[in-house]
Amino acid sequence: MIKPSQLLEHWQGHRSLTRRVIEAFPEDAFFNYSIGGMRTFADMVMELLGIAAPGTKEIATGKTVQLIEKINHNNQKAKILELWDKSTYDINTYWAQIKPEQFQDSIKSFGQFEGTVWSAIFYFIDNEIHHRGQAYVYLRALNIEPPFFYER
C-alpha cells in the first residue's frame, strides 16, 4: 500500500514541521515553559531525539540501543536544532539500510517494546505528533501563532 520511501517522506514531513515548531519558541520558554505539570517542550524534544534516529539505527542494524532521553544541550535552542538536523540525517542514512521485507519482522525496540518494525516506526511518528500537539498548546498560551499543521 505504501512504499518505505513514501513512509520516510511522510515522517520527514512531520520532522520538518516539528523543527519549525521548535524554532517558533522563544529560547527561555522552550526550556522553561509548561502547563498543568507537563514537561517543557525541550524535554519532549529530547525524548524525540532519543527515539527517532537511535530507533531507526536499531532497526537497520539489529543491535539493541539504549533509550537515552537526556541530551546535553547547554540550554541552547540552536544546539537542539543542530541535534535535530543530525538526527534527520541519521534517520535517512539508517533508513536506506532497512530492507522492505524487514518491516514485518518482530522486534523489541530499545530492548523493551515488542512489536513489528512497522509498529515501532508508527510509534516514533505518532509520539512526535503527540508532543508537537502539546507544543502547539504552549505556543498558543504564549500568544504565538504555531506553524500550520498541514504544511509538511
Rank of each mutant, 00 (worst) to 15 (best):
N75K: 10
A141N: 15
I144M: 04
K63R: 14
E69G: 10
F30G: 00
F103Y: 01
M46I: 10
R152F: 07
E9M: 08
D126A: 13
S106I: 04
A78K: 12
L49F: 02
A52C: 15
K77C: 02
L17D: 03
E47Q: 12
R140M: 12
I68A: 12
A24Q: 10
Q12G: 06
N74S: 15
I129W: 02
G36F: 11
M44T: 07
Q66G: 14
S34M: 05
I91W: 15
K108G: 07
A120R: 06
W11I: 13
Y136V: 13
F149A: 14
E128K: 00
P146V: 02
K86N: 15
D43P: 09
E145T: 08
L48W: 00
H131L: 01
I35T: 14
K70G: 05
A135F: 01
A141W: 10
S87W: 03
A52F: 11
E69A: 15
W11Y: 14
G50P: 04
E23A: 15
K86I: 14
Y94I: 11
M46P: 05
L83F: 05
P26S: 11
A135Q: 03
I144K: 04
Q134K: 04
H10S: 14
F25L: 01
Q12C: 05
S106Y: 05
E58P: 08
S119V: 02
I71W: 04
V117K: 02
K79R: 09
V21R: 01
E82A: 09
T93W: 13
F41H: 01
I125H: 10
E27H: 05
V45G: 00
I125R: 03
H73P: 12
E23G: 06
P54W: 06
L81I: 08
G55V: 09
P26R: 06
A78N: 10
W84G: 02
N74V: 14
G111C: 09
F25I: 00
N92S: 10
P146F: 02
F103Q: 00
F110H: 05
I121S: 03
E114S: 09
A120Y: 15
L67R: 11
G37P: 00
K3V: 04
P100C: 03
F122V: 14
P26L: 07
H14V: 12
I68D: 10
F25N: 00
G62C: 02
Y33A: 05
G115V: 05
K70L: 12
N75H: 11
A53Q: 08
K57I: 07
F41V: 05
G133P: 04
L142C: 01
M1Q: 07
A29M: 13
N127F: 15
L7K: 07
E23F: 13
S16R: 13
N75P: 06
K86C: 11
